[in-house]
Amino acid sequence: MPGGGPEMDDYMETLKDEEDALWENVECNRHMLSRYINPAKLTPYLRQCKVIDEQDEDEVLNAPMLPSKINRAGRLLDILHTKGQRGYVVFLESLEFYYPELYKLVTGKEPTRRFSTIVVEEGHEGLTHFLMNEVIKLQQQMKAKDLQRCELLARLRQLEDEKKQMTLTRVELLTFQERYYKMKEERDSYNDELVKVKDDNYNLAMRYAQLSEEKNMAVMRSRDLQLEIDQLKHRLNKMEEECKLERNQSLKLKNDIENRPKKEQVLELERENEMLKTKNQELQSIIQAGKRSLPDSDKAILDILEHDRKEALEDRQELVNRIYNLQEEARQAEELRDKYLEEKEDLELKCSTLGKDCEMYKHRMNTVMLQLEEVERERDQAFHSRDEAQTQYSQCLIEKDKYRKQIRELEEKNDEMRIEMVRREACIVNLESKLRRLSKDSNNLDQSLPRNLPVTIISQDFGDASPRTNGQEADDSSTSEESPEDSKYFLPYHPPQRRMNLKGIQLQRAKS
């Protein structure tokens, strides 16, 4: 015994090295194993092979420090690593049964499904019991997946119906949107047309105001020219009257000059006056001389005659003075006559000038009245044309509004008919989907599995289990394997941990 101590140590070291070499393959693929292994699927088989106990299973599945599946799978690998070579062998058998691809990844061999460990530990009855539990578990999982698949199909059909409904609603909204954009385009076109009409109206108003201003300026210029013409006519008439007055005065002077006595007659009258003065002096001298030589009687007679002569001279002087006064009065009367005649001529000139001015103003008033009548006639014609244009424009607008209203009513009726057609199509689609759903539900009910399987069917299934373990590994792997896509769409199922009653199965096998 003492001599065998070193050999035992060498043997233990060799086993430990082999164990480390075995687990080295697992550690190399630890990331892939932790990512894809579900500990809840492996722990029943590991407990059946007595590699882990209930406490280890509870620690792996329910520990609060292991929230994710990767953490739980890593903890399970750590626990199996502590179990040595047996933990490695049982772990590979569980991978061979549940995850053939991972088994091939770790060992590089094809899975054979021999279950040597569980046969050694529990015997064939334990293997049968384990396989029966796994089959029931798989059936329950398949039923749950079928239910989930039916629910998802129903949800899918519902979503398809909602999608069709949303599509129809979208078509309806597109119809309304198209109608909205069309009405918006019509409104924009009408606004552009309105702005264009306003611009045209403004341009016409500006043109009309400009023409009116030009016409008023032309009328004012015409009036100024007419006033200048009238003033020139007035000056012409005044000059004609002055010329006529000057002509009359010149004719009067000419007549006075023609009626003036001649120079010879004046000289002859002056000679006669001198001769008479000479004779008068001679007679006076004779009379003076006679007075001195005459007697007293003759002197008395001469005195009487002288007195008579003096009286006659006085009378004559009075007559001469009277004649002079009369001549002066006649001259003054002639001057007054000439003055009055001049005033008369001036008044006649003024009267004729005023008459011509009156005629001029009368003509001017007639011209202004004619212009006013023409302006009123043009204004009435413009008003009439404007009223006709406004009436025609309003009539066109009324007809346009009428046609637009008819078009809008027809478009609304068309839209309502399209919407009604879309709604009826939606109703038809809904009815078809309901009919299809009812038909599929009836087919699913016919094809669904019963909840409680008979014992004979279970025994028959387990009677055929042994050949399947040898020759149909691919079928078992397809039913027991969970793909990543299934984990996305289906909830994980945790079967209840219970042991099955095998009395009925044993009785059935005894009868057979």
Rank of each mutant, 00 (worst) to 15 (best):
G4F: 11
G5A: 11
G5L: 12
P6K: 13
E7W: 11
M8C: 09
D9E: 08
D10W: 08
Y11I: 11
Y11L: 10
Y11R: 13
M12N: 05
E13K: 11
K16M: 14
D17N: 12
D17W: 08
D17M: 07
E19G: 10
E19I: 15
D20G: 09
A21Y: 00
A21G: 07
A21R: 12
A21D: 06
L22E: 14
W23R: 05
W23E: 00
W23C: 06
E24G: 06
N25F: 04
N25H: 03
R30N: 04
R30K: 00
R30M: 00
R35D: 06
Y36E: 03
I37Q: 03
N38Y: 06
N38D: 01
N38T: 06
P39E: 02
P39G: 01
A40H: 04
K41G: 06
L42I: 07
L42P: 06
T43S: 03
T43M: 08
L46D: 07
C49W: 15
I52M: 10
I52G: 09
D56Y: 11
D56H: 07
D56W: 01
E59T: 05
E59H: 11
V60A: 01
L61C: 14
L61A: 00
L61F: 13
A63Q: 05
M65G: 01
L66K: 05
S68W: 04
R72H: 04
R72L: 02
A73N: 12
R75Q: 06
D78A: 04
D78T: 03
L80D: 01
L80Q: 04
H81E: 07
G84T: 04
Q85A: 00
F91Y: 06
L92V: 15
E93S: 02
E93Q: 15
S94C: 15
L95Y: 02
L95A: 04
E96I: 14
Y98I: 13
Y98N: 02
P100Y: 00
E101R: 00
L105A: 01
V106T: 03
K109E: 00
K109L: 06
K109A: 00
E110C: 10
E110Q: 09
P111D: 01
P111R: 09
P111G: 00
P111F: 03
T112M: 13
R114P: 14
R114I: 14
F115K: 10
F115Y: 15
T117G: 08
T117E: 15
V119P: 15
V119G: 14
E121T: 07
E121D: 14
E122N: 14
E125T: 13
E125Q: 15
E125R: 08
G126V: 09
G126H: 15
L127C: 11
H129L: 04
H129W: 15
F130H: 15
F130L: 13
L131A: 10
L131C: 02
N133D: 01
N133K: 13
E134Q: 12
I136Y: 02
L138C: 10
Q139R: 14
Q139L: 12
K143R: 14
A144R: 09
